[in-house]
Design a protein around this nucleic acid. Structure first.
Lengths: 141, 141
DNA sequence: CTAAAAGTTAGAGCGCGCTCTAAGTCAAGC
DNA sequence: GCTTGACTTAGAGCGCGCTCTAACTTTTAG
């Protein structure tokens, strides 16, 4: 097991800055990392797995406070597995809701883009049509 | 046309606070709203349409700076329609990318939840199994 | 007419999630 | 040995997106 990753190695692999990695450790998102004799951090592959999972939580907009709560449960051992599952289920529900909301907005954006395209079409053959831009393509259908 | 919406009416309809509505106007996201004789804002239905569109941009995480740029183009008239379309297309691409990323993370969360469930299953029939929690369900498959 | 509720402004303040600074120690190459 | 660069800490600072305060005016209900 090549458990010899320096903080910069981890930064490169995760896309997090070394500053952020230390920050996450300071606030308890990441448990204390092992040290080389000189005091420098040496990340194990198990640390990497946890960090990558954290990034999944972050990618789904879990606030740091909740990640801290989750990390704390994890640190408290297997007995908290049910609590953790419940946290993840609640978070997952939020995420799915927000994805749905985004999808709905995406539909609106696409409609708007199509509307702009149609404007460009009509202006292509007639450069001084005086129609007012409604910014509400839906209304004109 | 009942263009007699007060700021509180609009707040209720949009979910934005009156504070935020004034803030958006101040920073140019919303063009100056018409006023009643005493100086109070009176929102027209066209204002509402724009605010609702802004909320779509916000729901898709467009930063305020870009919304300002978009609003400015809009204020500059029909000639900017192509620029606006391009902004929306670029934004849309970002949004689709981020939805994909979220979906990927959702898959990971679901796998993890399933893993927790399986742990609970095995503990249900044997309350002192000493298996170590790996926090990496993928590894065990 | 009065009292309470809702509106106005300019500007201060805040929570989040980093991000950077300062001052110093440690590690690697020549 | 010396230099260069990466590492360490504690703590300050920052950009974003609001959110609230203070002091005041206007509107509305009784």
């Amino acid at each position: 097991m090549e458990s010899y990753l320096t903080i910069d190695d981890v930064a490169k692999r995760t896309g997090l800055s070394a500053h952020t990695l230390r920050y996450y450790e300071r606030i308890g998102l990441i448990a204390p990392i092992g040290r080389a004799p000189g005091g420098q951090r040496r990340y194990a592959t198990s640390d990497m797995a946890w960090i990558e999972f954290l990034l999944r939580l972050r990618a789904t907009n879990m606030p740091i406070g909740k990640m801290q709560a989750f990390a704390k449960l994890r640190g408290a051992g297997d007995a908290t597995a049910q609590d953790r599952r419940q946290m993840l289920e609640e978070h997952l529900a939020d995420v799915l809701t927000s994805i749905e909301a985004m999808q709905k907005s995406v539909d609106v954006l696409q409609a708007k883009i199509a509307y702009y395209r149609s404007l460009e079409q009509s202006h292509a053959s007639d450069s001084h049509t005086d129609e007012r831009e409604t910014d509400d393509p839906g209304k004109s259908l």
